[in-house]
Design a protein around this nucleic acid. Structure first.
Lengths: 212, 212, 212, 212
DNA sequence: TGCTAATCGAGACGGTACGTCTCGTCTTAGG
DNA sequence: CCTAAGACGAGACGTACCGTCTCGATTAGCA
């Protein structure tokens, strides 16, 4: 993960050449391009290095695994999700989900959902990757936290609301839809949020789900 | 001269040897053994064939991909889940979830959840595999259908309950927990079901979730 | 070799179906066709059986090796070389060499020289094949024997001429040209024979050769 | 972003690792060992790589075919044949043939004749290999050239002797004996040369041969 | 006419080599 | 010291062929 790699602009005591930022960018770019062209499973470190005109040893030095390159891309993509506007719970959630689902679908030019799906699979047997994903989730939930706490503050949710449960509840459905390849289109986001809110507030079985 | 040989283009009647069931069993066994020993990503078709004492061509003849072998194992494991006992919705769901989660955890000797997780990841780029997984889900939901319809019949759920939404709702949380590596222990199943039921019936935010 | 295979018209004590001559012909035909299409090294027993619409077991039953099929073809081709006309030594040899070189070049529809070359190579490590080739040489030399003995009878060669050496001498050059891919065209045969005759007459009655 | 990185299409100056001479030697050694143990046809690229503890890709990088490895061995063996001593034609030829036949028989530790036989067979369908063999012949004939020209200079052969024909003539017999598995023993070399000389002297200055 | 072998086609099987590819490491030379 | 290039040992990939083995269907002499 990028957290464990030396800071790019950090003061260094050792002599010698510095890490090439141009190379790092070229590698990420090459990975994204290959992702679009051949799909995640067909991406190889070899091809990434070739495409980026980088030496294989250079790639391996900074990213031990292709999942780590994927995580670098996910991290880079994440920071482009702006904070919620603080409106009603429903509107904040629609805003938030629209952005998250859009990010997953690839609206930012990168199908982040695809990367997430593969990273979750590989994380099963790679504890370091699993920890990175948990951190990623925690970060995402920080923003959800703000949304839900604001809703509690506005009285839209009862004061004793369990934040952890609420966040799980809100995310479990989109995540399930992501994994089963049924991510909602932009005009279906509101319905997905409403379904979620039903359950979150005092849920019922009133409206139909997207179905399988 | 071959023109003088009889019936060259006639419909053939001879058939050749049949598929060996012993070999099929050996391959599935070998896959399960390797899964336990080296983990899913490290399994290779080569090693499966070697371990099963089967020819590589034989393995490829019947399973084009290691994910397909995993699916064969999942299917074989599925049929060991018995039908619900038809008690209350809560108890039926606890029964059902206990078995599903147990199956996923590997109580049947095979960590089916692990296989499911990897199959979902690979299905992203393999439509045939995706279809097989959808069929698998549909089959699992058949049993959920019975449970929910029985609950509607008993008046535990309103008559107009949308079955598809209810099933999605019930499965999304366990699935999410599976993917995020937080499958509940046997004594936590009841709580997970209660959380689900809250949302399913007219849910509120009464009880805390397992948390991250 | 065909000599080791059961005689087709031999008296049989057991009952049952007989060897299919149509199949034998189809196999030889398929081999010849593949020889022309893909070249000797690329011929496989599998392809021969497929092409002949014969079962692999049937092919293996009668020809243990593809070199044995080649030998069957060589033997079939050989019998079409007629006996010499008994003219002068020079003319008999030109006649004979024209036919042999023509046979090798493929004038009979089958590039026998190509088969011979490969059989000689494989015979290095297959004693049975080597014996068959020696028999094939001996048969060819029987005809040469007649030519040379007639020449001795007509006084064209001295009475004490060593037949074995003479035959070796006559065949070594065309064979060398075959192996080095320089088989003479029809109008160059006479010159080749003349070159041979110079040496044959000069050294003919001197010393016995190593023999066959 | 890669556009901003310097000198992408410029002529490269860095070079990468060089070919490993140790590996080349190990491969040739492994091939020779396998030749002695299992025979030429049973040698596989796989086994050569395994035996040489080399990667298969490394072997294929430098030798596209096992015949090419054989040629490397032949070439390495060739350079150990010393120049003729310039005595009489007969003695020079006996010297030369003794060495050539000895080389073929394997006196240098490697049965070169066996390799030659198989290379000639495979060269039928591999033009590149055929060219390499022709080059090998031409090199061998350079030495024969010297022997024959010296004989012409000493008056042992007529001044107009056709060198190409003479060389063909001298080599055709030993070659034939090699191919028919009757390579002469050391004490039979003189007789073989004498037989050859009979023809060589009689027909020497008559007509040009087909040439190499 | 029915029985009994032998032979046939087809093709699945356990093996194994093919030639290619990627892995992750190491070497080389330039900056 | 970092970099691009690329050779290296290792070994999996998916295909093809090896030679053996069932499978039924077919064929022909013997009962």
């Amino acid at each position: 993960m990028s957290e464990t790699r030396p800071q790019l602009s950090e003061a260094r005591s050792s002599v010698g050449a510095r890490r090439s930022e141009a190379t790092e960018a070229a590698v990420l770019e090459a990975f994204a391009a290959l992702l679009a062209e051949v799909g995640y499973p067909a991406i190889t470190m070899e091809a990434v290095a070739r495409r980026a005109r980088a030496g294989k040893a250079t790639v391996y030095r900074w990213w031990p695994t292709k999942a780590h390159i994927a995580l670098s891309l996910i991290s880079k993509a994440k920071i482009e999700i702006p904070a919620p506007r603080g409106l009603s719970l429903r509107e904040d959630l629609i805003d938030y989900m629209t952005r998250v689902v859009g990010l997953w679908r690839g609206d930012a030019g990168l199908p982040v959902g695809l990367l997430v799906r593969h990273c979750y699979a590989e994380a099963w047997s790679d504890p370091e990757l699993a920890a990175a994903l948990q951190a990623e989730r925690r970060e995402r939930w920080t923003m959800l936290n703000a949304i839900i706490e604001a809703a509690v503050g506005r009285g839209e949710l009862p004061p004793g609301t369990d934040l952890a449960r609420a966040k799980d509840f809100v995310m479990s459905w989109p995540f399930y839809l992501l994994m089963t390849d049924r991510l909602p289109a932009p005009d279906e986001i509101a319905r997905m949020v409403d379904d979620t809110l039903d359950g979150l507030r005092a849920g019922s079985s009133r409206r139909p789900s997207p179905g399988i």
